[in-house]
Simulated assay, not measured.
Amino acid sequence: MGRVTARRRVLRISVDGERAVRPDSLAGEEPLELRVGGKALTVTMRTPGHDIDLVLGFLVGEGIIGSGSDVTAIRYCASAASAASAVGVVGSAADRQGQDVQTYNEVQTYNVVDITLAPSVPRPDVSIERAFYTSSSCGLCGKTSIDGVRLRSRYEVDADPLVLRPDVVLALPDRLRLAQKVFATTGGLHAAAIADADGNLLVVREDVGRHNAVDKVVGWAAREGQLPLRERVLVVSGRASFELTQKALLAGIPALVAVSAPSSLAADLAQDAGMTLVGFVRGGSMNVYTGAHRIADALVNSGS
């Protein structure tokens, strides 16, 4: 699977003392530097693949753009020897919008991308104070305070008419797990998906970073011209943190379903925004923390 996974030889030791050397597959992890107009914006550790979606989703999640049309070009930065060999246009929706989103047939690696924003889009602050480093375990690393990341979304979700049947919600984690092809090989990736009201998964992405997986599905929506994601559900394989809840809000998603627990700040943000937040979806039960009115016949008192 190329750079998505890597093979390593490991020593396997069992409880009975048996030892055996065998090959094992690990999830790929590499840095990706994002530049805007040639100026460094951030570096994120990610699993290579769907990088254009990752970039678009990241920009949406930071409140820099609100749709794919706010970006006119995303290019891999190549060496001087290979910069002349541009190939293809990434994404049919980008093509329909007249965008010039291209990849370079780079000799080195595909770990630096440069973004060109539409003239009407305000440029982000890329000063030393604004620059930050994003690791695969924390999408907020380098932020000076929680107030610095609680961005105001351009989309309202409180009036979204989405209604979900409990059986649909309970089936979402299993559907997501079945779609995790790389996790089945490595056991080392998070996943995110966008689902409709009937539980159909419209897009699934995997990554070593849970925030990256969310950025990739949101970026897919931006590239396909589907923002805001009205009457849609964000499904995540782990916990529902503040950062993931904020990313859902900035993409106009009215419901977030997580296999594990939410944080208190995630619940506060969902409550304030009018978003439905569901956690601990496993074993035939779930906890509805906010927005229980969207769960048909919900017998859960979420306090909302």
Score class of each variant (00 low, 15 high):
6 A>G: 07
12 R>A: 11
17 G>V: 15
19 R>V: 07
28 G>L: 04
35 R>K: 14
40 A>R: 15
45 M>P: 03
46 R>I: 14
47 T>F: 02
49 G>C: 13
54 L>R: 09
54 L>V: 02
56 L>V: 14
59 L>D: 01
59 L>C: 10
72 T>F: 09
75 R>C: 01
77 C>S: 06
86 A>W: 07
100 D>I: 08
106 E>F: 06
109 T>P: 05
112 V>S: 07
113 V>F: 07
115 I>E: 01
116 T>R: 13
119 P>S: 09
128 I>K: 07
128 I>T: 08
137 S>E: 13
140 L>T: 15
140 L>P: 05
149 V>H: 06
160 D>K: 00
164 L>S: 00
170 L>D: 03
184 A>L: 15
188 G>L: 09
190 H>A: 15
195 A>V: 08
197 A>N: 04
197 A>G: 10
198 D>C: 00
205 R>H: 08
208 V>K: 04
219 G>H: 12
223 R>H: 08
225 G>C: 09
229 L>Q: 03
232 R>E: 03
246 Q>Y: 02
249 L>G: 00
249 L>H: 00
252 G>F: 04
255 A>I: 03
258 A>M: 11
265 L>A: 12
267 A>P: 00
272 D>R: 09
272 D>A: 11
279 G>L: 09
280 F>P: 01
297 D>I: 01
301 N>K: 06
303 G>C: 05
